[in-house]
Write a protein that binds this DNA or RNA. Structure first.
Length: 259
DNA sequence: ATGACAATCAGAGATTGA
């Protein structure tokens, strides 16, 4: 079973690029971030025609997440628990009924800039709620994963120019520590469990020719429970998608899971 | 230190992003 994450930076703007990638990569499940659309405006038929079940958690203008799946989904939920006041659409989860059922959580973690400030406080608060949900996933002792745009550069090797990010909410020591606080509960970061070393990125800014200069950062991640890590067969970044027609600034990252 | 670029909503330019 191939599960992917892709921050598409607007479904309307990716109406060609996303189906094109789905046809070539043929993932069974995709979690999308930044659909930037309300549920009613999401072009679900486009993906249903490609064989996907569509579950969205949309919002006007900003944020918004979704799950596309060729396998049946059960128990879809759309809120990260812990703050009833939080109006931002950044979380969706469902159980994918494959050969082995897998709980798949799709997340769009807050950017947090400028830091310090209220947006950074929101990021850290959101990560504290994420940790609580992560603990519950571990306690269930079942295959589960949390995938999406974490807006975290885990280590200096995950940026082409780490010095440029030192004071940024994506790479500050307190941001990295909050990420490790979750990882260290017992999750496997899928990509780093299989690939070592610098030069692997999932985002390149639209500005200043970042793609052409390979000035990227790696901020889209998969965290697997131990039971899910047992199933991990591969994890790759589809970097070439960034060079396509009218691309998102992020590219897809995917895992292959097998019993 | 700033802006570069893109998307959204709206119907110009502000806001957001990373």
């Amino acid at each position: 079973m191939k599960v992917a994450t892709f921050n598409i930076n607007g479904i309307k703007a990716r109406i060609h690029a996303l189906p094109d990638w789905l046809k070539s990569a043929d993932p069974d499940v995709v979690v999308l971030q930044e659909i930037k659309s309300v549920d009613e405006a999401f072009p679900r038929e486009l993906f249903e025609d490609l064989g996907y079940v569509v579950e969205t958690h949309g919002q006007k203008s900003f944020n918004g997440v979704a799950i596309l799946s060729k396998l049946p989904l059960e128990d879809v939920t759309r809120e990260l628990p812990g703050d009833d006041e939080d109006e931002q659409a950044r979380w969706i989860e469902a159980t994918v009924m494959g050969e082995v059922p897998v709980r798949v959580c799709g997340l769009y973690l807050p950017n947090g800039n400028p830091a310090p400030g209220p947006k950074y406080d929101y990021k850290l608060g959101w990560m504290a709620r994420l940790k609580t949900r992560a603990e519950a996933l571990l306690a269930a002792e079942e295959p589960a994963l949390m995938a999406g745009d974490y807006n975290i550069i885990p280590q200096d090797e995950d940026a082409a120019r780490p010095e440029a990010w030192q004071k940024d909410a994506l790479a500050m020591p307190s941001s990295r520590a909050a990420f490790r606080d979750i990882l260290n509960l017992g999750f496997t970061e899928a990509f780093r469990s299989r690939v070592q070393g610098p030069g692997h990125y999932s985002f390149w800014d639209y500005q200043a020719g970042a793609w052409q200069r390979n000035d990227g950062i790696r901020i889209d991640h998969f965290l697997l429970t131990p039971e899910c890590a047992d199933l991990l067969r591969d994890c790759q970044i589809d970097a070439a998608v960034r060079g396509g027609e009218k691309p998102s600034d992020h590219v897809p990252v995917w895992v292959e899971l097998a019993a």
